[in-house]
Design a protein around this nucleic acid. Structure first.
Lengths: 236, 236
DNA sequence: GGACGCCTTTGATCCACGTCAATACGATTT
DNA sequence: AAATCGTATTGACGTGGATCAAAGGCGTCC
């Protein structure tokens, strides 16, 4: 027997669409979350070009999104974890404009978009929370542009680690110890660096006692030290 | 006498919020567009940290948005022209997270956000168009991330010029001849390059007969040639 | 109309990161 | 325990774009 999706029971509701809704409203939201979908590691939740029908809230696991050019170059545009929403890119053209790929076995709640718009016309708090989620995505992207446009390799990696740490914290995990779900190559793509550069930056951080790195297992030893790297830039 | 703001009379309505609305709905939108605001060149429409109250549709002129770090580094996150919407970044935290600065004397329509949400609960087509505009911004940002993360200097500039050309075309201007409203430094910041590199890339394009550059006046001579630069990349 | 200031161009040099290549590590299979 | 494969680390070297520096163009304000 499939357990019914229930936002009201979900411990991610503070991060997700139900945030700010009263219990009765959450029940209404529950009704439109049609189904859940399991995605195995390395499989696509959607592909660039797929018709857009729904957005997805991550229930378990994690994803990356990427954009691929004709000539094969690809750019990871984000890593998403539980409670975050995928698929917003598809609204503008009725087709998805990037790929969403599971970094580990994962599960998402499928939110049919037409019905979400319908309900958010009735439920003000849902409407507002949805707008906030979209806006948050825009702000996040601006942060990445800052990172890609004007930071050096070690600053980018420091920013990346601090960002992960903060998001793990928000989910009740340790701020200082976690497992990376993505490869050096994927991190590099996201940060606009080659995988060797990412690896070297990790090694440097390790030498300086900022983090303990063992493959994908990361322990942050000196958070203020990492933050210092971010601002310690003297030039223009 | 101030001429009343009227979306129904505005020749930008096909690009802006009124797109897809029927005449009666456009009239309703007209009512909530409280006022227009003129912004002189180099002045801020809003600043990072300002409380968020409204979004802005550009009626005339053009803007840049940027993010500034404590250490002074700044990153231009976008250039906006007529019919485009500014301020969406502010929804997520109730405060603006970037600066919006006029590149020339400009005018915007002020759209109080609370009232926009209110009306878009009643007018489905408005709701949907607003969602499309937010989504478009996300897709655009992903494109910039691609550019910053995996293109070389000349590819970035070619992509930039082609993008401008296309947006001018959509506004009824020449696709091949236009005036840049921003400096080399601002272009560089947007593209993650130094102003000297931007200048050199322009010179190179000129030498190769792709464009005619005279300060801020640009004539595109060979659009397919520019497009070829974008894909002509052999490596990973 | 002359002087000032801002923006742009161009050249010479430098360096952070990319590239290429070898090796090592860990998980999985046999 | 050996073999295989994907991933990660490390070293040596090359290069695209940054940096530094000097001039030149253009608008603007007295």
């Amino acid at each position: 027997m499939e357990i019914k999706t229930a936002c009201s029971q979900c411990n991610l509701r503070e991060l997700c669409l139900p945030f700010g809704l009263d219990p009765r409203e959450v029940d209404q939201l529950d009704e439109l979350v049609g189904s859940r979908r399991k995605i195995k590691r390395q499989q696509h939740l959607y592909r660039s070009g797929d018709p857009f029908e729904a957005i997805y809230a991550i229930r378990a696991g994690s994803f990356k999104t990427d954009v691929i050019l004709e000539d094969g170059r690809d750019q990871v545009t984000g890593f998403q974890m539980t409670g975050e929403v995928l698929g917003l890119d598809g609204i503008s053209s009725e087709h998805h404009s990037c790929n969403a790929i599971a970094l580990e076995d994962s599960e998402v709640c499928v939110i049919p978009f037409v019905r979400l718009e319908e309900l958010s016309r009735q439920v003000e708090s849902l409407q507002h929370q949805f707008h906030k989620i979209m806006s948050r995505e825009i702000v996040r992207d601006h942060g990445v542009m800052m990172l890609l446009g004007s930071m050096r390799a070690e600053e980018r990696l420091a920013a990346f680690l601090l960002n992960l740490s903060q998001r793990f914290t928000a989910r009740g995990f340790s701020p200082s110890e976690f497992h990376l779900r993505m490869t050096r190559d994927e991190i590099g793509s996201y940060l606009g660096l080659k995988l060797e550069t990412v690896s070297r930056a990790f090694s440097r951080f390790q030498d300086e006692g900022l983090v303990a790195v063992q493959q994908k297992h990361i322990r942050i030893l000196d958070t203020p030290g990492l933050k210092r790297i971010l601002n310690h830039h003297a030039s223009s």
